[in-house]
């Protein structure tokens, strides 16, 4: 099974940052059965990485692997749209219950 790799840029330990991380981890468990790596970068601590990644909005999630590289902005609160935007496989079970 392909291992997915994500980098999540957040700004400080705010509610929004926590929500984004929780939502991303939830999607990893649900759609990828945990076969994923999540690296969280706090731009307040590592502005150099924010600069390098050209991050404007936070939270921003970047799918580093597998290719193509995809970016999504926001706290990923809409799981269905977030999964689609990040190119994750379909969720098990009837989709209408999940949307």
């Amino acid at each position: 099974m392909t291992t997915y790799s994500f980098r999540l840029y957040v700004a400080g330990t705010t509610e929004r940052s926590k929500a984004a991380e929780a939502n991303l981890r939830f999607l990893c468990d649900e759609r990828l059965a945990g076969a994923c790596e999540v690296e969280v970068v706090d731009v307040a601590e590592r502005p150099d990485l924010a600069e390098e990644g050209r991050v404007l909005a936070t939270p921003t999630v970047v799918r580093l692997a597998p290719p193509p590289v995809l970016r999504v902005v926001g706290d990923l609160s809409d799981h269905g749209r977030a999964a689609a935007a990040l190119g994750l496989p379909a969720a098990p079970g009837p989709p209408e219950e999940r949307l």
Partner: peptide
């Protein structure tokens, strides 16, 4: 997708 700011 969802709320965001310009923290970056």
């Amino acid at each position: 997708v969802g709320a965001y700011d310009f923290g970056g």
